[in-house]
């Protein structure tokens, strides 16, 4: 701590119901991945440290239990898939071994039963000719297929929660759609709760029930997807939504630009709104204290002093429909 600390995530709270899907949205280095890694207790220590807070999973505080207990939860109750499937798979093991090992470990199956189950899983995630591909190595699979294998591995122990960290960022759009449809199908089929970490606002709109918007490690706004998109209350959310080009709107619609640079987490003022330096709605009070979460509606909270609804409507940034 001699060099000063970097608050990657600062006082973030959210909840997730059984079978629900939640998106953590934000730009790079906003702490969205770190917050998910904390749930898995996968923050490398040192230098990372969870300074405070609780992570309650099924009524149990994950920060208080032993590493041994955590190991059982990881991969068993909570599973995770990552952005780069090619680096998450062991290149020298066949697909059936990779899947089989976690089945043997977590579900106590013997080798032949594990292989049979691996085959079922591959079929479930839609890998064509699954029987033939069982003994293939990861490099013989395309990126999309590798991610399917990762999903199969994540599902192998029937987890209650699946965390997907930018699951489709490195994958082509048409394949991306396939994968997200698959994840969505599995959620309705098995009732797995899902946290999707992404910067893609389109994916959020299509697949997710509730949204958490993060900026510089802090929660800016959270609420049901439809509400967030229709009546965003935080200037950052409004700016974000207005800064992406949309296929369905006329091209004459101007993009609104969030001016300035992404925040430097080391230099962030700790007692002010993190978005203040880039905010065009800022008022005097923003320079005096830090806003706390305020309720805007059913499950809809935001951290801002300014009621920006009128202004943003008149600028055409939000539709203003109720």
């Amino acid at each position: 701590m001699a060099e000063g600390e970097l608050r990657a995530v600062d006082g973030l709270s959210y909840y997730l119901r059984k079978g629900e899907s939640l998106a953590i949205v934000g730009e790079s280095a906003c702490g969205k991945s770190v917050s998910a890694m904390s749930v898995m207790r996968l923050i490398p220590y040192p230098p990372g440290i969870i300074v405070g807070g609780e992570i309650i999973f099924k009524g149990q505080n994950l920060l208080k239990i032993s590493e041994e207990e955590m190991r059982h939860i990881r991969g068993g109750q909570i599973a995770m898939i990552f952005q780069e499937p090619s680096t998450s798979l062991n290149p020298v093991l066949t697909i059936s071994r990779q899947l089989g090992e976690s089945l043997e470990l977590h579900r106590g199956l013997d080798k032949s039963a594990a292989t049979a189950e691996a085959l079922n899983l591959l079929k479930l995630v839609g890998i064509p000719d699954a029987e033939k591909r069982l003994n293939d190595y990861p490099h013989q699979f395309s990126g999309g297929m590798q991610q399917r294998v990762m999903i199969a591995m994540a599902l192998s122990c029937n987890p209650a929660l699946l965390i997907a960290d930018e699951p489709t960022t490195s994958i082509d759009v048409t394949v991306q759609a396939q994968l997200l449809e698959l994840i969505d199908k599995l959620r309705s089929q098995f009732g797995t709760a899902i946290i999707i970490i992404t910067h893609n606002l389109g994916i959020v709109a299509r697949y997710v029930d509730r949204v958490v918007v993060m900026y510089a490690g802090q929660l800016m706004e959270t609420g049901p997807t439809d509400v967030i998109y229709a009546e965003p209350r935080h200037p950052y959310t409004i700016g974000l939504l207005a800064s992406v080009p949309r296929l369905d709107l006329p091209r004459s619609r101007k993009l609104s630009v969030i001016e300035g640079l992404p925040p430097n987490l080391i230099r962030l003022a700790k007692d002010r709104c993190a978005f203040l330096p880039r905010c065009k709605y800022a008022i005097g009070r923003c320079n005096e204290e830090k806003p706390v979460l305020e309720k805007a509606g059913e499950e809809h909270y935001f951290a801002c002093f300014v009621d920006v609804r009128k202004q943003s409507e008149s600028e055409g940034l939000t539709s203003g429909k109720r």
Partner: peptide, 14 residues
């Protein structure tokens, strides 16, 4: 430098 800046800012009142 960042440390120094932080100190300076603290001293000034940000």
């Amino acid at each position: 430098r960042a440390k120094r800046r932080e100190k300076a800012e603290k001293a000034q009142g940000s």
